[in-house]
Amino acid sequence: MDHFPTNWGRPRNDGFDAYGTYPIAQRPYNGLGNDVFSEGVQRTQQPIVTGTSVLAIKYKDGVMMSADNLASYGSLARFKDIQRLHPVGTNTIIGAGGDMSDFQYIQALLDDLMVEEFTEGDGDGHALGPGEIHEYLSQVMYARRSKMDPLWNSLIVGGVKDGKRFLSYVDLLGTTYSASTLATGYGSYIAQPLLRKAVEGNEDNITEEEAVKILEQSMKVLFYRDARSLNKYQIAKITSDGVAISESRSVDTQWSFADGIRGYGAQTQ
């Protein structure tokens, strides 16, 4: 006969001697490492379904942003029809790289915020502009990283309010910065130098057509060099007239040179 009631069968929590029946030397250990739930709570430790670069520039009439339509699952091109540019209100757009499920959460958060704004002050002339949205996002991102549970994104917030262009960045750490050209992810290595060369000092002269050209050129270079990118992307523009996101488009590419590269395609020797 087993005289320890705690051994008679308990639903859960073996770490606790509820009836004090064990001799102290045999009492089940309650401390760290013995918690049956210790592996039950997990936080994001890496992104899963990811989007790659977002590019954005200031130009004469406002801000232009582009991102491709791919959401990768590791190196697999898993979803090819994902929009990574999201309008917020009437004069702001956010573009997201990084974890797409976290981005969807951010979209829901911002949509809720806009509904709240609508209910408490529609048409009172105090609509949230890009600057306010960016500050809000940076507070959210920093709060989440401080909980050791970051939203795994790099975000670009762009917009026009009261005739002023706004372009700013925030990422999973809550780091923020502004510039007249911004790029996230792989684009910050490959496209950013091209964008700077084309835009810096020229922000007030670049026309809409030129701005589209600059982004198209950079997207093409990214498609050539970034293995997680797709030749299907959208361009958004934000002017004082509001927000417009284009249909998906692509650029012409040349791959004939690849024949001569060893390692590309089927090897004959």
Binding site: E120, H126, G131, E132, Y136, Q139
Partner: peptide, 15 residues
């Protein structure tokens, strides 16, 4: 100020 880096609109404060 903290959430939006914006001085609160007076009408909303009164509401």
């Amino acid at each position: 100020k903290m959430a939006f880096n914006r001085p609160v609109p007076v009408n909303r404060l009164v509401s």
